[in-house]
Design a protein around this nucleic acid. Sequence first.
DNA 1: TAGAGCATGTAATAGGTTACATGATTAG
DNA 2: CTAATCATGTAACCTATTACATGCTCTA
Lengths: 189, 189
Amino acid sequence: VKVNRSRFAVLGLLSAHPSTGYDIRKTIEQELSHFWNESYGQIYPILNALAEERLATRRHKKQKGKPDRQIYSITPKGRQVLNEWLAEPSGVQIERNETLLKLFFAGGLGRAARRGLIESYRQKQQELLSELDEIEQALEGNGADEPPHALGLLTISHGRAEARARLRWCDQVLRELDALPRRKTPVRR
Amino acid sequence: VKVNRSRFAVLGLLSAHPSTGYDIRKTIEQELSHFWNESYGQIYPILNALAEERLATRRHKKQKGKPDRQIYSITPKGRQVLNEWLAEPSGVQIERNETLLKLFFAGGLGRAARRGLIESYRQKQQELLSELDEIEQALEGNGADEPPHALGLLTISHGRAEARARLRWCDQVLRELDALPRRKTPVRR
DNA sequence: TAGAGCATGTAATAGGTTACATGATTAG
DNA sequence: CTAATCATGTAACCTATTACATGCTCTA
């Protein structure tokens, strides 16, 4: 069985409150960007399809001075479909890691370039940690009436755990690389 | 600047020794599958393109009892192109995490389903650790003449660090979920 | 007055998986 | 006898990003 996860990302956001395509993009960027992303090219056609399948309803709202909005709301059927998907366990997902790919082939590279690879990766992780701080702010509910999004905060702690683990790995590798023989491409087989 | 990473995965494997498309697929499965994947639908067209661009040469080898082989070897130009790519730092890559997506929207889910989500994720990480052990074996060079692939082993340690961090996160979340209020969808905004 | 934010959408393109076709040999 | 391994390749399909078009308002 193969499902389109982008559909569920959109449906999931609609399950919190009615939104426009524009809203959805913004929320994804502000609250999910550490583990998910969607572009307009996906969102708008998906919203259309959800409405056709009666998983969401659309209503047009005129605005003055600003473009009109197409507001989508999840239907009971949509909520049901979403919950069914939420309950089924996720399949394994091999996530590509470009830095590891480069490292794997870095035998022909010089000492400095090899270190550079890891150092740049290390910095990316540190930047990620800062981004996580910002996203956490958004999830904590800046307004007084908004309760913090407890489940969202758990995704933040996941991101931090991964980033910290990668940082430690970088530090260890940087130490080991110096100890590694500086001979040419270690051709195997 | 946007590059096709699959091309470099293939080129990188050719840089170790001449291979067929079939060999490449097998090596990827045995040694890179914890952070990279490629299907035949990608590999064969890429090999063709590499030969056309003179980054690799092809030679046909007849076999009896088995299908003929198309053996590709990297050219000096290919090696140069590869090394240039290896040296440039990798851009950020947001990797999608389906479990986190589900957790984010799990407000409407029951207690048990919520725990199930995390427990299944936890088990996937444990399975990953076992796979890493197997891949490590392959990289250590089972033959006596083969030296271990030191850089490859670093990618294993990266995988382990991530998996262990995720395991710890699961354990923590499983503890916290019980403490979380069991009220309905925490609608925000 | 330039740029950002609001808002919707599509077309072109790139990236990637799955299924299929073919067919001999070998191991269980 | 069945299934796996060897080996190459393509077509259909899905998934996803980028760039573009449009046009008003508000801020620096």
